[in-house]
Design a protein around this nucleic acid. Structure first.
Length: 828
RNA sequence: GCCGGGAUGGCGGAAUUGGUAGACGCGCCAGACUCAAAAUCUGGUAGUGGUGACACUGUGAGAGUUCGAUUCUCUCUUCCGGUACCA
């Protein structure tokens, strides 16, 4: 059959994408409420920081979310997919300094541009719920929540160490410290202790740890990272008394009490009070401590810098052995972790071993492997074993010794069984302008006084002159000067702002009731939360996702939500790379998605991003791959338009729908329903959109080889193409919107259910078996589906092509993998 | 340093529970159409040997378990993410 292809409508993405988007707008297709009787499905991609323009990572993130949302909608769910802006943050301040533009103005401009770009991608958002975290309507509730935490004693102040730029007189983020120096001034950074606000996330440590077991919809990888981050360890805190001043004790924590006889020195952090005390009459030590204060507070930097230490001249008494050991100051001990002091067991800890070797401190072996009595002395032995040289405890296993030593310390009040967490309380103060003001007032007489709830929000002034030296809030007297709510005397506002992770820790819940003006969240939040599917970058595996879990539990305890966890299922997407490395402006390897959308259309960009790699893996950008995606869409377009154009040749085709009679029809219909089955599993369960697309491509290749000659053939063609268009519709919603109508369907594809599998079509008369001999592939055999194992054996033994391998050999074993594979184990 | 993850043709990737390694796409090669080119269509494409059927080798490196390992275990190399003030 031939058609005049020149007369068929060409694929014009710009036209059909505008039409589809206009249809969704007019019908408010993505605006949802709670009145539906369908089950709810809340799908959320991590909201963007408005950095300026969309990058490919955004396109990937939001396309994945959109595909899942549209698929769930086709399954009959009441789907919420909202979007907003994580609008506070450091880049706005940097832009303000560089371009003399207020952070608020810069942010607004970026949001406008990125919103336009998101819209052009055809993402199915409920824009009526759009929020931005820099709006007082949003952050007032964050201030309110902070006040509730303060009332409960879960928000408190303490000293913490920051990077200080002595030239710019400003606190630096770790990212702003380059090779130990401030990125703008170039001055060596100093560590400085300042008083800051903290949230007591450690009060929820056990729940945050235990509830990870409930999160079966999360990747194991992320749960493991969070488990390790929380780092619960059981052990004992041991008190070492100072030799010259037994009233003063150094407290250390260990999970390896069995190694206590191997302690040969104590190490304390440079910021430890005892270090300062010892340095007061020791200029060399003073200089050493001073030197350690000139590096970033970042753990990655500290852990890779050379380990250095100096003796304090103090000695402490091991409470168990009575032995006197020196006390050292060491740069590898963190004041912010535990007590800021550790007992060092060089023989059984790698880091202590290196330090002891470097400074010629004693290394005493007290644990030996169970199997042997030999000890290698060129490396630390960190496993558990049998105790030696440990007084009455010698001969015990490590586990028994831990129990008995802990008991011995406990009974003499020289130690205490305790739990230790690696997790630290969440420091939420930032000495920055562009953030949520912390709703507190400093009063000379009353101390810290919370802003009364009736006075919220504390509004961040937006018209400011921003120089980047110190927060403009400190000069803004109308902001700064306030009357103490307690004593009515003049007082000052807190000028620190919140860590921006605060805003991103509860926005998902606010989307459910974005216009609630009397409460932080109303009942609608409990209808929509928890989020059924959350999607975002793997780089958020710990911090953001842990803080959000924490605040969700806080919201629960405020009776604002009833669930224990915010995100039922989590998909962590990989990075987008080009030429093997991360896209970045500095490398000059960025790709502008907008240019591609203009050139090929949104569907092509969406298809490429979903096809190039499974979502959890990193994605290698390829311009040629984009071209290939465009080519495929043109093929789909051509397939449908030529099919539709031939309609007149096959009257009454509808009589023959959903049937197959000839062999070629059965084969194509098998392929169709096999494809539906696989694509349903790939999109719905495995979330491997790349293999779903590949399978649809295969089906279309089969369709191209299928010649349409009868009304029956035409009916099957219609069934195949309708299913292809339906299965593609979550991924490429615009072209499928148009093709669905061309196929003669009268409803919009967005409101059409997902296709279902006809199990009748999957029945096969014969199956193909793989034949192996000694595990090696030796050919294939097609055998009837209904066949016994003995009949298979007979057929295999008679197969001519196998004779050269089995002649004169003894078959020792037959291995059957049902309907798939037969392996003959023969003597060689 | 520590925690987590990855490595498969020329390239992106597939192989879902230990069972045909390389689906699908890109690129390349050949052919068709064209005055020509582009676009499109058809066929081929891991390596080596062979006209061919086929044989051997092959999933970062090395060992192990198994009838059978890309998949499981151990050791190592290397790249990526996080490391608490980038988001």
């Amino acid at each position: 059959m031939s058609y005049n292809i020149a007369n068929l409508p060409p694929y014009e993405p710009q036209t059909i994408e505008a039409e589809a988007q206009a249809y969704w707008n007019e019908n408010r297709s993505f605006e949802v409420d709670e009145s539906s009787d369908r089950p709810k499905f809340y799908c959320l991609s991590m909201f963007p920081y408005p950095s300026g323009s969309l990058h490919v990572g955004h396109v990937r993130n939001y396309t994945i979310g959109d595909v899942i949302s549209r698929y769930q909608r086709m399954l009959g769910k009441n789907v919420l997919q909202p979007i907003g802006w994580d609008a506070f943050g450091l880049p706005a301040e940097n832009a303000a300094i560089a371009h003399q533009i207020p952070p608020a103005v810069w942010t607004d401009k970026n949001i406008a541009q990125m919103k336009q770009q998101l819209t052009s991608l055809g993402l199915g958002y409920d824009w009526s719920r759009e929020l931005r975290t820099c709006d007082p309507d949003y952050y007032r509730w964050e201030q309110w929540l902070f006040l509730q935490l303060y009332k409960k004693g879960l928000a408190y102040r303490k000293e913490a160490i920051v990077n200080w730029d002595p030239i710019d007189q400003t606190v630096l983020a770790n990212e702003q410290v380059v090779n130990g120096c401030g990125w703008r001034s170039g001055a060596p950074v100093e560590r400085r202790a300042i008083t800051q606000w903290f949230l007591k996330i450690t009060a929820y440590a056990d729940e945050l740890l235990n509830d990870l077991d409930k999160l079966s919809g999360w990747p194991d990888q992320v749960r493991t990272m969070q488990r390790n981050w929380i780092g619960r360890s059981e052990g004992v805190s041991v008190l070492f008394a100072l030799q010259d001043n037994p009233g003063e004790k150094i407290e250390v924590f260990t999970s390896r009490a069995d190694t206590l006889f191997g302690v040969t020195y104590l190490a304390i952090a440079p910021e430890h009070p005892l270090a300062k005390q010892a340095a007061s009459n020791n200029p060399a030590l003073q200089a050493f401590i001073e030197e350690t204060q000139h590096s970033s507070v970042s753990e990655a930097v500290r852990a890779t810098t050379e380990k250095k230490g100096m003796a304090t001249g103090l000695y402490a008494i091991n409470p168990l052995s009575g032995r006197s050991v020196p006390v050292w100051v060491a740069n590898y001990v963190l004041m912010s972790y535990g007590t800021g002091a550790v007992m060092a067991v060089p023989a059984h800890d790698t880091r202590d071993f290196e330090f002891a070797t470097q400074y010629h401190l004693p290394i005493d072996w007290v644990i030996q492997p169970e199997a042997t009595d030999t000890i290698t002395t060129n490396t630390a032995f960190t496993e558990k074993g049998i105790l030696v040289n440990s007084g009455d405890f010698s001969g015990l296993t490590s586990d028994n010794a831990i129990a008995q030593i802990t008991e011995a310390l406990d009974s003499t009040a020289q130690g205490k069984r305790c739990l230790q967490y690696r997790l630290r309380d969440w420091g939420i103060s930032r000495q920055r302008y562009w953030g949520t003001p912390i709703p507190m007032i400093h009063c000379k007489d009353c101390g810290m006084v919370p802003v009364p709830e009736a006075d919220l929000p504390v509004i961040l002034p937006e018209a400011v002159d921003f120089q980047g030296i110190q927060s403009p809030l400190k000069q803004d007297l109308t902001f700064l000067q306030v009357t103490c709510p307690n004593c009515q005397q003049p007082a000052q506002r807190e000028t620190d702002t919140f860590d921006t992770f605060m805003e991103s820790s509860w926005y998902y819940a606010r989307f459910a009731s974005p216009d609630s003006h009397t409460r932080m969240l109303d009942d609608r939040a409990d209808y929509w939360t928890p989020v059924d599917q959350y999607i975002g970058g793997i780089e958020h595996a710990v911090l953001h996702l842990l803080y959000a879990r924490f605040l969700h539990k806080v919201l629960r305890d405020e009776n604002l939500v009833s669930s224990d966890e915010p995100f039922t299922a989590l998909l962590t997407q990989g990075m987008v790379l080009k030429d093997g490395s991360k896209m970045s402006k500095s490398k000059g390897n960025t790709v502008n998605p907008q240019a591609l959308i203009n050139q090929y259309g949104a569907d092509t960009v969406r298809l490429f991003v979903m096809f190039a790699a499974p979502p959890e893996q990193s994605l290698e950008w390829s311009d040629a791959g984009v071209e290939g995606a465009y080519r495929f869409l043109k093929r789909v377009w051509q397939a449908v338009t030529t099919h539709v154009a031939s309609l007149a040749h096959y009257p009454n085709w509808q009589t023959f729908l959903h049937q197959a009679h000839t062999e070629k029809q059965k084969a194509l219909r098998y392929q169709l329903h096999h494809t539906i089955q696989k694509v349903t599993q790939d999109i719905g369960e495995r979330k491997t959109f790349n293999t779903a697309i590949a399978t649809i491509m295969e089906l279309l290749n089969h369709w191209y080889k299928f010649t349409t000659e009868t009304p029956q053939d035409y009916a099957l063609s219609q069934e195949v193409l309708s299913a292809v268009v339906l299965m593609l519709s979550p991924i490429v919603p615009h072209i499928t919107h148009a093709l669905w109508l061309q196929l003669g369907h009268t409803n919009a594809i967005i409101d059409t259910p997902w296709p279902s599998v006809d199990s009748e079509a999957l029945k096969q008369d014969a199956l193909q078996w793989v034949i192996q001999i000694n595990g090696k592939y030796r050919g294939r055999m097609t055998l009837p589906a209904q066949i016994t194992e003995d009949e298979i054996k007979q057929a295999v033994l008679q197969e001519a092509s196998l004779q050269q391998h089995i002649r004169n050999k003894t078959i020792r074993q037959w291995i059957f993998v049902p309907n798939k594979l037969i392996n003959l184990v023969i003597t060689p």
